[in-house]
Computed example of a mutant assay.
Amino acid sequence: MTEVLRYTAFSADPEGGNPAGVVLDAAELDEAGMLAIAAELAYSETAFLTAPPDGLGGEPGRAFTIRYFSPKAEVPFCGHATVATAVALGERLGPGELLFATQAGTVPVTVAEGEGGVLRATLTSVEPHVEDVPDADLSEALAALDWPAADLDPALPPRIAYAGARHLVLGAGTRARLADLAYDFARLEALMRRLDLTTVQLVHRAGPDVFHVRDPFPVGGVVEDPATGAAAAAFGAYARELGLVPAEARLTLHQGEDMRRPGVLTVELRAGDPRVRVGGEGTRIP
């Protein structure tokens, strides 16, 4: 029988962060079986591991193929489920390096033991990119969110950012604007499917390197994602591309507070390396 584990990512508290399903041996499951498990769990994503493809590399026994399913469909990459899976593997294999073959590309992950024995996983994204948002698409997104354009932060211009999955980044001028999230689910989902977006990342800047974020996720059948590692990686690329932070930076993203599932995501940018590193704690959900 397939064992389905439950872990939370970006928090050491099972009641915080973003819960994910984790199947460490999915060799006997086909796509329909994976989707059925993801739908039954009803988490934003569930990760499924199988043997690595030939030539992936990595340490023997620490390299895998990983696939991600939301309750509605497969997604190419999911950061929080990657972190959750890495923590689950770290408990069984010990801290160290892991290598995942995803549909978006190869993703290395480092698992380290922190204070009190809590495991922390840091993934390295595929190479990111950032693109402009057509005015008509931006207007439709704001209409679906019921956000007046005046509520946007002009210092955080709208962009679509990619680091394994595509995310529309919108800056909220105030923390109150970010906290007030009530959107047209079907309308936003339709726009996101047309633009091939995984989430809309709503961001408020609280300081030079501190941000509060929220991620509507209607395309996954979920109103909101509590902590979104893929979007955090995309945001790191966005912030660097627009010169909002130094080329060498460590950003802290707070997510889930408005859902009463607080989590903390660390985004690391390194000069000379286009990839983005996203890290956080994780723990098993009893």
Rank of each mutant, 00 (worst) to 15 (best):
R6L: 13
F10S: 00
A12T: 01
D13N: 11
P14G: 04
E15R: 15
N18C: 01
P19S: 00
V22S: 00
D25W: 03
A26D: 08
A27R: 14
E31F: 05
E31A: 13
A32Q: 10
A36V: 04
A39S: 09
E45H: 00
A47S: 06
F48I: 07
F48G: 09
L49Q: 04
T50D: 11
A51V: 08
P52Q: 15
P53M: 12
L56M: 05
L56C: 07
G57H: 06
G58L: 03
G58S: 00
R62A: 06
I66D: 00
Y68I: 01
Y68M: 01
F69A: 11
F69I: 11
S70M: 06
P71Y: 09
P71V: 13
P71I: 13
E74C: 07
E74T: 07
V75D: 09
V75Y: 05
P76V: 06
P76G: 14
G79E: 00
H80I: 02
A81Q: 02
A84C: 09
E91P: 05
P95G: 15
E97D: 12
E97W: 03
F100N: 00
T102F: 00
Q103C: 08
A104T: 01
T106C: 05
T106Y: 03
P108A: 10
P108L: 15
T110H: 08
E113M: 09
V118K: 15
L119P: 04
R120P: 04
A121Q: 01
H129T: 14
V130W: 01
E131W: 04
D132K: 15
V133K: 09
V133P: 07
D135T: 11
E140Q: 10
A141I: 06
A141V: 15
L142V: 12
A143Q: 12
A144K: 09
P148V: 12
L152F: 01
A155V: 05
P157M: 13
P158K: 14
G164E: 01
H167P: 05
G173W: 00
G173V: 04
T174E: 04
R175N: 14
R177G: 13
A179Y: 03
D180P: 08
L181Q: 01
A182L: 09
F185P: 06
A186M: 12
R187D: 11
A190G: 04
R193Q: 07
L195R: 13
T198A: 11
Q201T: 12
V203P: 05
H204C: 13
P208K: 14
D215C: 14
F217I: 13
P218L: 15
P218W: 07
D225Y: 06
P226R: 14
A227F: 03
T228M: 10
A231W: 06
A233I: 04
A234I: 02
A234P: 09
L242G: 08
V245W: 06
P246M: 10
E248I: 09
A249T: 07
T252G: 10
Q255H: 10
G256R: 10
E257V: 14
M259E: 08
R260N: 12
R260V: 14
P262H: 09
G263Q: 03
V264H: 03
L265E: 02
R275T: 08
R277K: 15
R277G: 08
G279E: 02
E281H: 06
T283I: 03
